[in-house]
Simulated assay, not measured.
Amino acid sequence: MSTLQRETNPKSGYAPSLLPQHERKDGAYVPTGENNPLPTAGYIQSSAGLWIPRKGTDDGSANVNIKSALPVGSNVIGKTVMVDPAGDGVEVSSASNSIDGSGTNSNLLYTASYQQAFNGSGWDRWRNNQEGLLLPSTWRTTATTSATQINHNAKGLFLCLDITAVPNATETLILEVKSLVNGNGSWAYANYTIPANTVGKFYLLAYPGISEKTINRVVQSSTVIPRSWYASVNHSGAGAWMYSLSFATIL
């Protein structure tokens, strides 16, 4: 750090006075004046009375971005304020507004919690009833199996075989649900034999404790779903069928 600078031509009889000066970043003092002004920052006042420094861009232009003030009373104990997508402060609505059909502008502060279940090596999210397509609708002449499905926490399964075209013969289809244990082996634990020359929807319902019977194209089987399962459709002949297969798991 250098020493402060003094006048070089003081008034006769007077000691040299210190010059108006400021320190540079290298520690040296330089006189402050028209050719070497004191660095300053521009400020602008917000609607709330706050003085905010102006920000500059690389080309030297000013860039002022002022958001509205926080709501009146936001500093009161028991009130919560958040910043909305526009960057403005808004007061969070009370929890009583958290009801079905509440508007999108309720300013609610949402949190989420959910159940998890350990699968032996990691954690899975807890599922509600799930639906999906196992086999898309197309012509088939041989046995077809779906991809292996993972059951997270459902007990039952509902399959829908939708047949839209059949061969002109006495051929039948057998819809089966099969299971895997640790990826090894498979066996059918629920099945439905579809009659020949019949189009429409056929259902297979597997759930523990239900009565085992057939009612209006719905075969019921009292069983549970293992973690790994898949469905297969077996053909009794080489005729062409058109069908799709969808599923729904049931808690």
Rank of each mutant, 00 (worst) to 15 (best):
T3G: 15
K11M: 12
G13T: 06
Q21E: 07
E23C: 08
D26Y: 07
Y29V: 06
Y29R: 04
E34A: 15
N36A: 08
T40L: 12
Y43P: 10
S46G: 09
L50Y: 05
P53L: 00
K55H: 14
D58S: 11
G60N: 03
S61A: 13
K67W: 11
A69C: 09
P71G: 04
G73C: 03
S74K: 11
N75S: 01
G78E: 04
V81H: 02
D84H: 11
A86S: 05
V90M: 01
V92I: 06
S93Q: 08
S94W: 11
I99K: 10
T104M: 07
N119Y: 00
R125Q: 12
R127T: 01
Q130F: 03
Q130W: 11
L135T: 04
T141I: 08
T144D: 13
S146C: 12
S146R: 09
A147C: 06
I150K: 14
I150P: 10
N151P: 12
N153H: 04
F158R: 07
F158A: 10
C160N: 14
P167C: 03
N168T: 08
N168P: 07
A169T: 13
L173R: 05
L180E: 04
S186Y: 10
A190V: 08
P195S: 02
F202L: 05
L204Y: 01
Y207M: 05
G209M: 14
E212S: 15
K213A: 05
S221E: 09
S222N: 05
I225Y: 05
R227A: 10
W229C: 06
S236M: 03
A238I: 03
A240K: 03
M242Q: 15
M242T: 14
Y243F: 12
L245G: 05
T249V: 06
L251V: 04
L251P: 15
